[in-house]
Design a protein around this nucleic acid. Structure first.
Lengths: 295, 295
DNA sequence: CCACGTCCATTCCGCCAGGTTATGGCGACG
DNA sequence: CGTCGCCATAACCTGGCGGAATGGACGTGG
């Protein structure tokens, strides 16, 4: 009777992968769940969309007809949603923990100054999505950390750089040191972000500074509070922006400067086909980035 | 995260009614269910779509923007589904119990002759939907009984007429009679179809032949088997097409000719914007209607 | 020819979204 | 000021979704 966008995304994933198992892991669901959903779609349409074989799934004539239509359907929905939000004078902004630091409030204030009567709806994203909702079209613009994979398909501007430091438990042997060389940390277990995103994860694990040394993952966390408690429990250490010392001070957690790792870069990213409000927001970001960089 | 067509239909119903309670009964759900679903949609979009008051719901600016888009979205989906079915060489045909009688098989055969390699997918509709799925766009074409309300918005052709007779329990006092006058039946309880469709229901209750006499409804049924068992149990009598005697003979149920009621008219109806396969099917119906009428 | 790997289907189970009924709060209206 | 209509909330129930484990069909390599 009813079809939702999820079903359509499932369908395209299967079509593109040509393989249920792989499509399932790409969508982060189990293979039986996909089987079942696909059956629903097929019985809803009364049509077989794929021919199954032991080598995989291939689209039928009907499946190809549907596949040709689905992107337009999903696009039309995203567009309608974006237009609705615009009409409500609400700008939804994704962000990653403290992505833009102290500048965030100023950016929002500047935007509300520029667009009287608008509201800014800040949505914090989990670290499993370094695009902060941009990739899933949940937000048209986001404050985040660079680089992230898939960056090329969005508009991206750098806002400022800041050094990275290390977060460790106050009980850690190195906690008393004023400064730590990254080479001293190569064998420490780390508290990492989940997910498979390559560039971004590599940056925070400082893969390029490890020269091939293995990473031992002591814990995986999605959100700041989980992260802090993992650090405090001594499950591992982690590289964080220097500003974390101001934003995430907590008993049991200390932050120490680190030498030998590249700085972190904060940025703003947006969907290419976004509306005027988004470009206004980006302008505000850029205007305030200089001020923020000096903090 | 995901939106389905149901949510959009709910939304338009609320927008059109301007009143949750009425929209709820139009959609055959409870009012709290609508409240909850609407909240989901609003929080998904991060936008208030209606302003609530004790006089009802009125669209906000954002709500109007969405309302302007939704028909196109739903239409695009229906279109994509129709095209997919066409590509699969499947024609889905809605029908109402024995709508086209013996002709049905011949029509299907003729269609398969005309369109080599096509399959016809017959979907039986419940009597709560006299359009046999046409109104909900579940099928592009249907075999049904005329008249039904909303008829003007579809293509409609009459196929044949046949007399109506009365179905009654074999224990009924009149069961032994060879023929019955409708005036003798005015005080009998009847087994009726559910739902509010005016013209169609009135026709089967023979409202215009009752001259204002009240109808007593003894039972309401959705499907032939329910109907037959209701008749057999003596919950009431009912007018049926004369052909029912052939299609629905059953122990405990007798069919008797009735005088004083208009005949029943079988027809084919289709969506105006349907594709070639549908018009082919309609042609087959018309070609075989004459043959069927003589049976 | 068999043993194994791959891929899709099936089964069973826990859980949540979406439904229902009952009830509360609030403004409009007589 | 009582009453009615309308929407929100609470408590509860159930069907469907998703997960883990398993089965079955097919191809492939030793």
């Amino acid at each position: 009777m009813d079809v939702d966008t999820r079903l359509l995304r499932y369908f395209t994933a299967i079509a593109e992968e040509g393989n249920l198992t792989r499509a399932a892991q790409r969508l982060f669901v189990s293979q039986p769940a996909l089987t079942k959903q696909l059956k629903h779609l097929e019985s809803h349409l009364g049509v077989r969309l794929f021919t199954r074989s032991s080598t995989g799934m291939t689209l039928t004539e009907a499946g190809r007809a549907l596949a040709a239509r689905v992107p337009a359907l999903l696009g039309a929905w995203d567009e309608a949603a974006a237009e609705t939000r615009t009409a409500a004078r609400v700008l939804r902004v994704g962000f990653l923990s403290s992505a833009a630091n102290e500048a965030t409030q100023d950016i929002v204030a500047a935007f509300r100054e520029r667009r009287q009567g608008w509201r800014v709806d800040m949505r914090q994203a989990p670290w499993s999505d370094p695009t902060a909702g941009l990739a899933g079209a949940e937000v048209p613009v986001a404050l985040l950390r660079l680089p992230f994979s898939g960056q090329e398909s969005f508009g991206v501007r750098s806002l400022f750089r800041e050094p990275r430091c290390v977060a460790l438990s106050c009980t850690h042997p190195l906690a008393g040191r004023a400064e730590i060389a990254f080479t001293e940390l190569l064998d420490e277990p780390v508290v990492a972000a989940p997910g498979g995103d390559g560039v971004w994860r590599d940056h925070w694990l400082a893969m390029s500074e490890r020269e091939g040394r293995e990473v031992r993952v002591g814990a995986v966390t999605e959100q700041p509070d989980e992260f802090l408690s993992a650090i405090a429990h001594g499950y591992g250490i982690a590289l964080v922006p220097a500003s974390a010392a101001r934003f995430y001070a907590r008993p049991g957690v200390v932050y120490r400067p680190v030498t030998g790792v590249s700085p972190s870069e904060a940025g703003v990213a947006w969907h290419r086909d976004a509306d005027e409000a988004v470009t206004d927001f980006v302008r505000c970001c850029l205007a305030l980035a200089r001020a923020g960089a000096e903090v």
